[in-house]
Amino acid sequence: MGYIRIAAGAYREMVHHCMEEKPLEACGLLSGSEGTVGRCWNIRNVNQSPVSFAMDMEQVVTALQQMKQHNEQLLGIYHSHPNSYPYPSIFDIEHVVYPCSYLIVSLNRLRPRVRSYRITGGDVQHEPIWLVPS
C-alpha cells in the first residue's frame, strides 16, 4: 500500500494514550477494515518502563478476538518513545511479529510526533500517515 490510513478519532486516541502514560512507554494495537484504521486498542505495558514495553498478552488476545468478531484486521501496532525520536530501536526492529504498520509516538518535544514504518527482516521503511475523517 505504501501508507497507512487512520481515522482521526483513532489517531487522537492513540496519541492521548501515549501522553497519559508518560513518562512510561505506552503501547497498543490499531485495527480496522478496508485498509483504514478505525479503532485504537490501549494495551497495558507490563514492563512499566520509560525505555521498553511488553504488551499484556491477555489484553492482546482479547483485542484480537474482538477484532475478528467485528470483521476487523490488525493494521498497526504502536508504542511511545517518551524521551527519544520516533524511530524504531534495535529492540523494536528485532521483535517485529506481525506483518503490519509499526507506529511510534515521540513525546520528547512540546508537540507529539508520530511516524509509521513497515519493518520486514530488519529492513525499516518509513510510510506516510494519511488521516481520514472519523
Rank of each mutant, 00 (worst) to 15 (best):
I90R: 10
G35I: 04
G2H: 06
N71D: 04
Y102A: 10
Y102F: 04
R111S: 12
R113P: 01
V60Q: 05
V61H: 03
L29A: 05
R12A: 15
W130D: 06
P86N: 12
V51A: 13
V124D: 05
E58P: 01
Y117R: 11
C18W: 02
H81I: 04
A8I: 04
M55T: 02
P88K: 11
R44W: 06
Q73H: 11
V15N: 00
E58A: 14
I90S: 07
Y85G: 03
E58Y: 05
E127I: 15
A26W: 03
Q73S: 14
V46L: 15
V124F: 06
T120R: 14
M55Q: 10
E34H: 07
V132Y: 04
Q65V: 08
S134W: 02
C100S: 07
V37K: 12
Y87H: 13
C27L: 09
V51M: 07
S33C: 08
W130I: 15
E94A: 14
F91T: 14
H17N: 12
I93N: 02
F91W: 07
L110T: 13
C100Q: 06
V37M: 11
Q59I: 01
L110W: 04
S89A: 10
S116P: 01
H95G: 08
N83E: 13
N71W: 01
C100E: 00
H95T: 05
R12G: 00
E25D: 02
Q65Y: 08
Q69D: 10
S31R: 10
Y11L: 09
Q66H: 06
N108F: 12
I4G: 08
T62N: 06
V105Q: 04
M55V: 02
N47Y: 06
S84R: 09
E94W: 01
P133R: 13
H81D: 07
S52D: 01
S106L: 02
E20W: 02
L29Y: 02
T120Q: 13
Y11Q: 05
L131Q: 12
G9N: 15
V114C: 11
V46I: 15
H70K: 15
H70G: 05
E94N: 11
H95A: 03
S52Y: 03
G122R: 09
T62I: 08
S106E: 04
S52C: 08
P82W: 05
W130V: 11
R109L: 13
F53A: 05
A10G: 01
C40T: 10
E72R: 14
Y117Q: 08
K68S: 13
H79A: 10
L110C: 10
S101Q: 04
V124C: 12
V61T: 03
Y85K: 13
P112H: 11
Q66C: 04
V97T: 05
S101A: 15
R5M: 14
P99H: 12
D56F: 05
V51F: 07
V124P: 06
R44V: 09
N108D: 14
V60D: 07
E13L: 11
N42S: 15
G38F: 04
I90H: 08
G32R: 11
Q69Y: 08
V97Q: 14
G121I: 00
V51T: 10
N47H: 12
S101M: 05
A10Y: 03
S89H: 07
Y98H: 15
A26H: 06
L107K: 09
G76Y: 01
